[in-house]
Amino acid sequence: MSMVPPSLLCLGLCLSQSTWAQKGNLPPPRITALPGSTVPAKSHVTLLCQGPKQAEGYRISRVGSPEPMDKEEQITSRKTNALSIAEMTSGKTGLYHCSYQRGGRWSQFSDPLQLVMTGAYDKPSLSSMAGTVVSPGEKVKLQCVSKINHDVFILTKEDGDHVTQNQSSVPHDGGRQTIFLLNPVSSTQAGTFRCYGAFRDNPYVWSQPSDPLQLQVEAPTAWHPSVETQVRLSLAALLLLVMVVLLAEAWCSQGGPSVKSDEPPPQWTDKRR
Rank of each mutant, 00 (worst) to 15 (best):
M1Q: 10
M3A: 08
P6N: 09
L8S: 04
L9T: 09
G12T: 00
G12V: 01
L15I: 07
L15S: 09
L15N: 03
Q17M: 10
T19S: 06
T19E: 13
A21F: 10
G24N: 02
G24I: 05
N25K: 08
P27F: 09
I31D: 02
I31P: 04
T32G: 10
S37I: 01
T38Q: 10
T38S: 15
K42D: 15
S43I: 05
S43F: 07
H44D: 11
V45M: 00
T46K: 09
L48R: 15
Q50F: 00
G57P: 01
Y58V: 03
I60V: 14
S61H: 14
S61N: 11
G64M: 08
K71N: 04
Q74K: 07
T76L: 10
S77F: 01
N81D: 14
L83T: 01
S84L: 03
A86I: 01
S90P: 00
S90L: 09
S90A: 15
G91T: 03
K92Y: 04
G94K: 11
Y96C: 08
Q101I: 06
Q101G: 15
S107T: 13
S107R: 03
F109E: 13
F109P: 12
L113D: 04
Q114M: 13
M117K: 10
T118V: 14
A120R: 15
Y121M: 09
P124N: 06
P124V: 09
S127A: 09
M129C: 07
A130P: 00
G131T: 04
T132R: 06
V133H: 05
S135M: 08
S135Q: 14
V140W: 07
V140S: 10
V140N: 07
V140P: 01
K141M: 14
L142Y: 06
C144F: 02
V145W: 13
V145D: 12
S146R: 05
S146L: 08
K147L: 07
K147G: 13
K147C: 02
I148G: 00
H150C: 10
D151L: 05
I154H: 03
G160A: 13
G160Y: 11
D161V: 08
D161I: 03
D161F: 02
Q165C: 03
Q167F: 09
P171V: 05
T178C: 09
F180H: 09
V185T: 13
Q189F: 11
T192A: 14
F193W: 12
F193L: 11
F193V: 07
R194E: 05
G197D: 05
A198S: 15
F199I: 04
D201H: 11
P203M: 12
P203W: 01
W206M: 03
S207E: 05
P209A: 15
Q216P: 01
V217E: 02
E218I: 12
P220I: 00
P220T: 01
T221H: 08
W223K: 11
W223A: 11
H224D: 12
L233G: 03
L233I: 00
L233A: 12
S234E: 10
A236E: 12
A236H: 08
A237I: 00
L240K: 08
L240C: 14
V242Q: 06
L246W: 05
L247Y: 04
A250Y: 06
W251G: 06
S253I: 10
Q254M: 08
G256S: 07
S258I: 00
V259Q: 13
P265R: 03
W268H: 06
T269Y: 04
D270L: 07
D270C: 10
K271G: 02
R273L: 14
